[in-house]
Amino acid sequence: MNQEQIQHAGDELYDALVNRTPVKPLTERFDDISIEDAYHISLRMVERRVAAGERIIGKKIGVTSKAVQNMLNVHQPDFGFLTDKMAYSQGQEMPISETLIQPKAEGEIAFVMKKDIMGPGLTNADILAATDFVIPCFEVVDSRIEDWKIKIQDTVADNASCGLFVLGDTAIDPRDIDLATCGMVVEKNGEIISTGAGAAALGSPVNCVTWLANTLGQFGIPLKAGEVILSGSLVPLEPVKAGDYMSVTIGGIGSASVRFV
């Protein structure tokens, strides 16, 4: 794709986000769209958000489960940018009916960094040493692509299908928890709908953050102190609507809950 097409696609996705009107998959319209093109489109989309006053506060990693990788026929995760406008606090109502198009919720472990760190060449030990704490998280993903008909390039271009997220209020030192085996239990409207464990995301949530730091490092982008990193879903995605109430509890870390309006 040429520069003009990339900018246009980024603007189109930004408009789709703001107006809540999904667009046709980019992969149906641009035969030659590469994953690199898609990241440039996402950067344009995020640029528009920043220009409108949003602040980047972290990153998210997506496509971390084997099931989703198989569905999209890729063997690597993807990433997107988090802004302050996406963040909600524990117990706050999340206004999905006014802000999102086709939301789905997923339980995750979020990392908060305590120092700047830049790949490539980083190991899990480097990531753990640079992590201030981990915290329970609900991510509510959304797609600006009609009916979630995404290929990997579509979701990458669409800022890794970022929607909104809520963080719990228990901060745990990563030294005190086995992040690969910690269990996750997700409840929707009081019913247990899924369980999983840390290893569901690339073998360990730490592997995901290491992948992100090394991938961003190739472009000279660090993970910064204070940034929030969503490390990837540990359970299947669950469609949600206004009126639903969900909670996620992670063994040894804590809970996050959210009420959708």
């Binding site: 269990g183 239990v185 247990i192 369980t195 999983g196 464990a197 840390g198 290893a199 569901a200 063994g251």
Partner: peptide
Amino acid sequence: VDLKHFGVVMEVNGEIVATGAGAAVLG
């Protein structure tokens, strides 16, 4: 043990094939 929330990771031939948590058993 937090019996409801402890996690389990099952690997066969070195590949992760399933994960879960205690609540999968009747809550």
